[in-house]
């Protein structure tokens, strides 16, 4: 693999650490320490992905993302010290494909990079879904084959897990109480279903989420139930 990744951060040590980790994985790295430089380097035709810090001198990350988006359609992951929900929403709405808060775990960052690259290079245009398939972000579900793929890779699920995924994927964004999930997946009434359902939810997360502790898709709505996020 020789895909090129642009890493932008005004902290050289952070750029160095990310570059080291990415180079280990075999990527070619471009480095920039401010927004203007990033825009210049973003013209590289071999470039496949950008990791962009937000708070930088000269031109901040989000403005740079906007400018780059005008010319190129490639995945951009924003790195930021701002961890508020509103900051994330702002970043994603400016054209970022993913938002990672500092300090991050290198493993998680690598997983996100791989995920974005796979979707960009293998699936092409992320916005077109195959007919009859349900798509939410990285996840694609084929209801006929009862098959879930993450970043185009099929996910191996047990029967129960497939049942839960089937229910939640068919009803993206809808919150299901544990009893209903249990009744519809197991096909019987249950008295204390919370624990059982929670165990399976956690297992599914391990298989589909990049960071199972802070899931992006399979979420718990505390005090109400469980849902699959619509992205």
């Amino acid at each position: 693999m020789n895909e090129t990744i642009l890493v932008v951060d005004d902290d050289r040590e952070i750029v160095g650490a990310i570059a080291a980790a990415l180079e280990k994985e075999g990527y070619r790295i471009l480095r920039a320490y401010d927004g203007m430089k990033a825009i210049d380097l973003a013209l590289d035709p071999d470039l496949r992905l950008i990791l962009m810090d937000v708070m930088m001198p000269k031109l901040d990350g989000l403005s740079a993302v906007l400018r780059i988006r005008e010319r190129r359609n490639l995945p951009i992951i924003v790195l930021s010290a701002k961890s508020e929900e509103s900051d994330k929403v702002l970043g994603l709405s400016m054209g970022a494909d993913d938002y990672v808060t500092k300090p991050f775990s290198m493993q998680e960052l690598m997983a996100r990079v791989r995920s974005q690259l796979r979707r960009y290079t293998r699936l092409g245009d992320v916005n077109t879904a195959p007919a009859g398939q349900i798509v939410s972000g990285r996840l694609t579900y084929d209801p006929d084959k009862r098959l879930l793929s993450a970043d185009g890779e099929p996910v191996k699920l047990t029967n129960i897990e497939t049942g839960i995924v089937d229910l939640l994927m068919r009803n993206l964004g809808r919150v299901f109480p544990a009893e209903e999930i249990y009744r519809r997946v197991w096909g019987e009434e249950a008295w204390s279903s919370e624990g059982t359902v929670m165990v399976h939810i956690r297992r599914i997360r391990e298989k589909i989420e990049l960071n199972p502790r802070e899931p992006d898709y399979l979420k718990v709505v505390w005090g109400i139930g469980y849902k699959m996020e619509k992205k």
């Binding site: 650490a17 300090p103 290198m106």
Partner: peptide, 19 residues
Amino acid sequence: HDLKTPLTSIISYTELLSQ
């Protein structure tokens, strides 16, 4: 916010080091 930047470096390099 200011703490998070050096902390990112520490965590990242520690992770790299552990590998």
